[in-house]
Simulated scan of single mutants.
Amino acid sequence: MTVREIDASAVPDDAYLLDVREQDEWLAGHAPEAVHIPMTQIQERVSEVPADRTVYVVCRVGGRSLQVAAWLGRLGHDAVNVGGGMQSWEAARRPMISETGQEPFVA
């Protein structure tokens, strides 16, 4: 099964963006509207992922999100990998916030 991939600059503004990075990565910087479910928790929390809309999955560089997108696809979700991950998101100058009070960055 081939997973669709999209460039970070092409992710729709109103997309359901699922960030599967670990907590420290999330705290350092993430997309403002992203939903955080670490890859290590996705199996037990999959019920939180909407089945009725496209899910754009992002991690740091695209490897973990590719695995999660493929897994979600096997479950019947319409899942798209964000190629290049948050590094590409940052490079495309997409909005980011942090939870630390400091300037957001991709950890």
Rank of each mutant, 00 (worst) to 15 (best):
Thr54Ile: 03
Gly76Met: 08
Gln102Trp: 07
Gly85Ser: 07
Val58Cys: 12
Ala34Cys: 08
Met86Lys: 00
Val106His: 09
Ile6Ser: 02
Gln41Ile: 00
Phe105Cys: 10
Ala91Arg: 00
Ala28Gln: 00
Gln67Glu: 14
Val58Tyr: 03
Glu22Pro: 03
Gly101Pro: 10
Ser88Cys: 12
Gln43Thr: 14
Val80Leu: 02
Arg74Pro: 15
Ala79Ser: 08
Ile97Lys: 00
Cys59Tyr: 04
Arg53Lys: 09
Asn81Lys: 14
Glu99Ala: 13
Pro38Cys: 03
His30Val: 08
Leu17Met: 04
His77Met: 05
Gly84Ile: 04
Gly84Pro: 04
Glu25Phe: 06
Glu99Asp: 07
Arg21Cys: 04
His30Glu: 02
Gly85Arg: 02
Pro104Ala: 15
Val82Tyr: 05
Asp14Arg: 10
Gly62Thr: 12
Leu72Ala: 14
Asp19Cys: 03
Gly73Ile: 12
Ile37Glu: 09
Asn81Tyr: 11
Gly73His: 11
Ile42Asn: 00
Arg64Ile: 08
Ile42Met: 00
Asn81Cys: 13
Asp78Gln: 11
Gly62Tyr: 04
Val106Leu: 06
Leu66Pro: 09
Gly29Arg: 01
Thr54Asn: 05
His77Trp: 13
Ser65Phe: 08
Pro38Trp: 02
Glu22Asp: 09
His36Arg: 03
Tyr56Ile: 05
Gly101Asn: 14
Pro104Ser: 14
Met86His: 02
Val49Gln: 06
Ala91Gly: 07
Trp89Glu: 02
Glu99Ile: 08
Pro104Gln: 12
Arg93Asp: 09
Gly83Ala: 15
Leu72Phe: 13
Ala28Thr: 10
Pro32Ile: 01
Leu27Thr: 12
Ser98Asp: 11
Ala8His: 01
His77Gln: 05
Gly85Lys: 03
Glu90Trp: 03
Pro32Phe: 03
Ala15Val: 09
Ala79Val: 13
Glu48Ser: 11
Gly63Phe: 15
Leu27Ile: 12
Glu25Gly: 12
Val80His: 13
Arg74Cys: 15
Asp78Lys: 14
Trp89Ile: 01
Val68Ile: 12
Glu48Asp: 15
Gly76Asp: 07
Gln67Ser: 15
Ala15Lys: 11
Val57Leu: 01
Arg94His: 11
Ala69Gln: 10
His30Arg: 06
His77Val: 07
Leu17Cys: 06
Glu99Gly: 10
Val57His: 06
Arg64Asn: 06
Met1Glu: 10
Gln102Ser: 14
Pro32Ser: 07
Glu99Phe: 01
Gln41Met: 06
Asp24Gly: 11
Ser98Gln: 04
Ser88Glu: 04
Met39Glu: 02
Pro32Glu: 01
Gly62Pro: 06
Ala70Asn: 15
Val11Asp: 00
Asp13Leu: 03
Ser47Gly: 07
Trp71Thr: 13
Ala70Cys: 11
Met96Tyr: 02
Val58Phe: 10
Ala79Thr: 15
Thr2Val: 14
Val49Met: 01
Phe105Asp: 04
Trp26Tyr: 06
Asp14Lys: 09
Tyr16Thr: 06
Arg21Met: 11
Phe105Gln: 11
Arg94Ala: 09
Gly101Lys: 10
Glu5Ser: 09
Thr40Pro: 00
Glu48Asn: 12
Ala34Thr: 10
Gln102Ala: 12
Ser9Asp: 02
Gly29Gln: 00
